[in-house]
Amino acid sequence: MSYEILMAAIPIVWDGLWLTLVITLSAFVLGQVVALPLAMAADARSRFVSAPARAYIFFVRGSPMLVQLFIIYYGLGSLEAVRDSIFWPILKEPLGCAILAVGLNSAAYMGALLRGAISQVPDGQGEAARTLGLSPWQTLTRVTLPQAYRYVLPVLGNEITLVMKASSLASAVTVVEMTGAARALVARTYAPFEVFTVAGALYLMLALGFAALFRAIERKTAIPGLSGNDA
């Protein structure tokens, strides 16, 4: 371990930090946005809705994210129909593909989780809401989801850390986020311990930051009188 290299590595790896953050936050938001309709579709009464949603969850959870990233980046780009479509500006960029791959992957895991959380809310609550004259939409947004999300909140903190770790895969499609920056620096300096220690420490800092943030959200949204966060 050389102190000078360690110090010299910090600003260079730090440059990759913002891209790591961009991928992590965009992919996390994308994952959350897709997860809810996915979870509801998987439990829909119509088979034509539930079967594709379940198949999606099954396939995405069953294969490596790297394959999914390559399917999106190299695979879709090889189709002429895709190159002519309105999605091409996103799909031709490695950054856009990385966000899409990580986000859609996270959506499958979150979708499965939300399905479980929604089924945790007792049926009686939905019946009671209907009796009180709430529309299905109101029941969902005012009764079911607030409870389901409190239930998954501890896992959400975990999920954003997993998404952050997954963002390192973007380096495989030439995005110079933190892992990519670190690897390029190792190729130049041949000092893997110093450089990867710096990168590891920055990742750890982010992970601990996310954990603290979600614990704070949990405390803020806890319902007084209910123990912990589970309703």
Partner: peptide, 18 residues
């Protein structure tokens, strides 16, 4: 704590190059 907060890819690089 460290392993949970660090990408697997980074660990692979560390072991491979280190």
């Amino acid at each position: 704590t460290v392993i949970r907060g660090v990408p697997e890819l980074l660990v692979i690089f560390l072991i491979f190059y280190g």
